[in-house]
């Protein structure tokens, strides 16, 4: 027993299951596929724990396994299915209702339209607060690429939501703002 308490990653793993599922869902956008992906990730992680460096970020390590698994499965499927980027699906996206704020449904639908690569960086950087440097290590691409990819992903998302910088909840036109405030008091906070 050492003085510093380093937990066995096997004991720690269950705590990361919710994050793994959420990350898997952000990549697959399909609950069944997401859980299959998590299952595969857990099995892989288990047989590779000897390669995990104790004391480092287990969640980041698990995320890396998960996304690598996701992309390798996808590459395999790509050979069988055409329309790999779901280009036709983009046509299905209609103009979101623009009332000066990001409605959740619109947001989720716009998020769905992004490529998995874009969803990935947004989930890691935007939702989980990893730095571009950390993400660079996790996904094995240059820091600069992570930065530019994240920027492009945000731009694309804004484009899909038909919002531009400086526009949105905090910067709506006075009339629009009044309408929003009048409609729902919950927005006031």
């Amino acid at each position: 027993m050492t003085a510093t308490e380093i937990r066995d990653p096997r004991d720690e793993l269950p705590e990361h299951l919710p994050s793994l599922r959420a990350f898997a869902l952000s990549l697959t956008r399909n609950a069944t596929e997401a859980d299959d992906l998590v299952q595969e990730t857990v099995v892989k992680a288990w047989s590779n724990f000897d390669r995990f460096q104790p004391g480092t970020d287990l969640r980041a390590w698990l995320f890396t396994i998960l996304r690598n698994t996701f992309y390798s499965v996808r590459r395999k499927l790509r050979r069988e299915v055409s329309d790999p980027d779901g280009i036709h699906a983009q046509g299905l996206f209609d103009k979101p209702q623009h009332d000066g704020r990001l409605a959740m449904n619109d947001f989720v639908r716009a998020f769905d339209q992004l490529s998995p690569e874009h969803r990935e960086v947004l989930t890691l950087v935007g939702a989980n607060g990893y730095s571009c440097e950390q993400v660079s290590e996790m996904i094995g691409v240059a820091v600069g690429t992570v930065k530019s990819r994240t920027n492009r992903a945000r731009q694309r998302l804004a484009q899909l939501l038909q919002l531009e910088d400086g526009e949105g909840l905090l910067d709506t036109q006075p009339a629009e703002m009044a309408a929003v405030m009048g409609r729902s008091g919950t927005q006031a906070a």
Binding site: P18, R21, A22, S26, L102, F111, A127, L163, D165, D171
Partner: peptide, 28 residues
């Protein structure tokens, strides 16, 4: 400049956290 950026991140967090709150299925 960061207002849209922030809104996007807040929504990303919300989407992510929605899944976090789900119960982990027994299969795991």
């Amino acid at each position: 400049k960061s207002s849209l950026h922030q809104q996007i991140d807040e929504n990303l967090k919300r989407v992510f956290e929605e899944t976090l709150q789900q119960d982990v299925p027994d299969r795991f």
